[in-house]
Write a protein that binds this DNA or RNA. Sequence first.
DNA 1: TGAAATCGGTGTAACGATGCACTGACCATA
DNA 2: TATGGTCAGTGCATCGTTACACCGATTTCA
Lengths: 354, 354
Amino acid sequence: MARVTIQHVAQAAGVSPSTVSNFLNDRQGRMVAATRTRIETAISELGYRPNRAARQLRNGKTQTVGLVVPSVGNPFWGAFAHEVEVAALALGCSVLLCNSERDPERERRYVEELWEDGVRSIILCTSLPSLDHVSNVIAEGLRLVTFDRPAQPNDPESVVSISIDNNVGGQVATAHLLELGHTSIAFVSGSIRSVNRSARYRGYCDAIEAAGLSVADMPQWTGMDAAHFGDVEAAEVGRAAARDLFADPKNAPTAVVAINDMTALGFCRGLRDLGLKVGRDVSVIGFDDIILADLYDPPLTSVRQPITRMAQLAVSEAVERGSNESTDPGSSVLLRPELVVRESTEHVPSTPRP
Amino acid sequence: MARVTIQHVAQAAGVSPSTVSNFLNDRQGRMVAATRTRIETAISELGYRPNRAARQLRNGKTQTVGLVVPSVGNPFWGAFAHEVEVAALALGCSVLLCNSERDPERERRYVEELWEDGVRSIILCTSLPSLDHVSNVIAEGLRLVTFDRPAQPNDPESVVSISIDNNVGGQVATAHLLELGHTSIAFVSGSIRSVNRSARYRGYCDAIEAAGLSVADMPQWTGMDAAHFGDVEAAEVGRAAARDLFADPKNAPTAVVAINDMTALGFCRGLRDLGLKVGRDVSVIGFDDIILADLYDPPLTSVRQPITRMAQLAVSEAVERGSNESTDPGSSVLLRPELVVRESTEHVPSTPRP
DNA sequence: TGAAATCGGTGTAACGATGCACTGACCATA
DNA sequence: TATGGTCAGTGCATCGTTACACCGATTTCA
C-alpha cells in the first residue's frame, strides 16, 4: 500500500505540490476559494496525511511536546502525564514521555536529545534550583516550561513556570494542624534541595512561627538532608521517617506534614507497623491529592494540586507561546493549592500517648 | 549552531558519505580496519548523531516502540509504562506513549498513526478479544505485542502475547480465600468482556466448583455486565460494588476477589463507608500488586504480576523479533502470577455479622 | 497608455541519510 | 597475457515536504 503523498493530492486537485503545501501551512491570501475546496476534497478523498519525517527533515521541527517527569511509576506523575496527553491531543500535538529519575544528567541528556530530534517545546518537571544544565538548549530557542518549580532569579528569560504556590501550600497544611490544636508537628521529606520542596518547608516554618512556636522545638527528622529525592521509593522514605521519629519518644510528634501523598502514605504505613492509628494517634497531611488519598483508610487529608488545569496551562504555554493569550516569558504561574480535609487529621489527642 | 551531518564526518575522515553510512549500518566486510577507526574518531570528535527524521524519511521506519495503554493515570499502567521505558532504553529505543482510554476506536487510530509515522513495533495493552480493528496494519508488517491479553484463536499469526496466566491467577486468589474457610465469595469487576478479565473470572469459577461449591450460590454483583471497564475510575467501581453487595444482607459475601488492586482498594473504601473492617469483617484480594497494595491499611493481599520481567519480554519481542532467541510468532507467553498474602484476607469470621 | 503593483500559482533546490549499481585496483588462474 | 573474481570504497537518485524566487495575467493609477 503506497503512501499518499502531496503529489497525489496535487494531481487530484489539478494544482502543483507547492500550492497544496501552501494550503496545508495556510499561507494567507494566496489562493482563490475554488482551488482551496478542490484541494480540501482531494485530501479527504485520498485520505492524505502529511509525512512527519519529511516535514521535520525539511524544517527541522516537530509538532511534538516533550514531557520529562521524574517517573511515571509514581501515581502523581502518572496522573499528570495523562492530563498532559489529553491537553496536547486537544491541540493536535503528540507527547514524548521521558523519565528522568530526577537525575540531572539524564534530564540534560533527554532535553538535548529531544532538541536534536526537532522537539521545540518541552515541559520539564525538575527539582533543580538551577537550569544551567539545559541553558545552552534554551539559548538556541527551546520553549521550556517548568512544572512544579517556580521561576528563579537566574532562570533564562524565556522560561515559563507552572506550579502551585508551595509556600502557601505548606502554610495551609501546617495551619490546619495548628488549628486542630497540634503543637508538635514534624515535617517529613526526602531531600528538600529543590525549589518546590524547600518552599513547602518554608511555608511550614512560616506557619509555625506565625503561631508563636519555634521550628527548632519541633521534632526533627534528618532524612530531608539526604541527597536523594525518592520519587520511586517515596513511600519508603515516609515509612523510615515514622520508624525514626517514634524510636525516640521525645522526638515523637502528634502531627506530620509530609512532602507528598506517597510519602504520607508510607508514613501511615510506618505508623501502622508501630501499632499507632492515623488520625486518632497521629495526624498526617500530604501534598498532591492523588487519587489514592481518598481511597486510603483513613482517607488522607491533602493539599491538592489542580493538575488538570496545570497540565492545560503547561501544554498551551509550551505549544502556543507567542500567541496573544500567552503568558509573558519569564513569568511564573502560581496556582493556589486547595486544602482537602479528610480523616487523617484530627484534633490533638487529649490524653498523651502511653 | 549548524548540525553535524554525515558529510562533515565523511570529510573529516577523508571518505565518502556512503562509506560512513556503511559504517553506521555496519554492512559487513566492506571496510579496512584503518578506515573504520578514522570514521570512529571523526564521529566522536565532531559529536555526530544521525538525524532521525532523515533516516526515517529514507527508509520509512523509526527506532521507536509504540506503547498503547488504557491510561497512565492508573498506577498499574503507570508502573508498567515506566518499566517499558527502562527496558527500551537498554535496547536503545525510545517509547511513544499513548492512552487509549480502552476505546477501541482510539486504539485503532493510535496504532494506525504510529504505523504511518514509521513505528514498526507496538506494545498494545488492549482488552479486546478481537484484533480486527488493527489487523490491516498487522498485515502490512507491524510487529504487534499484546500485553495482558493472551493469544486468541483468530489472532493474526505474527502477534506475540505477553500476559500472566489469568486463569491460574483467578484460581490462586479464590483458593486462598477458600482455604481461609470462606464459602461466600463474590467476584467484583467492571465489564469482564475482555480476554484477561474473563479468564480471571473463569479461574474464580473453576476454584469455586473445584471446592464443591456452586458459583450460582455466590453473591452476585451485576456491575461486571456493564460495558465500560473503568480503568480511570476503577476505584469507583469497587466502591459501588461494596455499596450494592451489602445493601442486601442476603447478598453479602464474607470475601471478595476484585479484578485488580484499584478496584479492590475502592471496595475497601466502600466497606469503610459502611462501617465494616477489611480483613476482620470481609476479606479482600486484588490483582496486580501495585505499590499501594503494600501501603494500604490493612496491606492488601494481591496476585502479583511480574511487570519488570513482562516489560522486558514485551520490549524485546517488539524490537528484536526475528533474532535467534525470539519467541515463535503467534505464541503466547503466560507468566505465572504470584500470590502475595498480606492482611486484607483473614479466616472467615467465626461469629456471623450482626 | 504604459509602468508598476497585485494576484494566483508554479519550478526547483534543498533538508540528511541510504543503498544500489558501479569503478578501479589488485590478485589468481589458465 | 587475457579472463574473471574479489575487495574497498564511491556516485547518485531518492524519500516527502517546504520556501524562496519567479512568472504570466490582470488591475491600478498617474
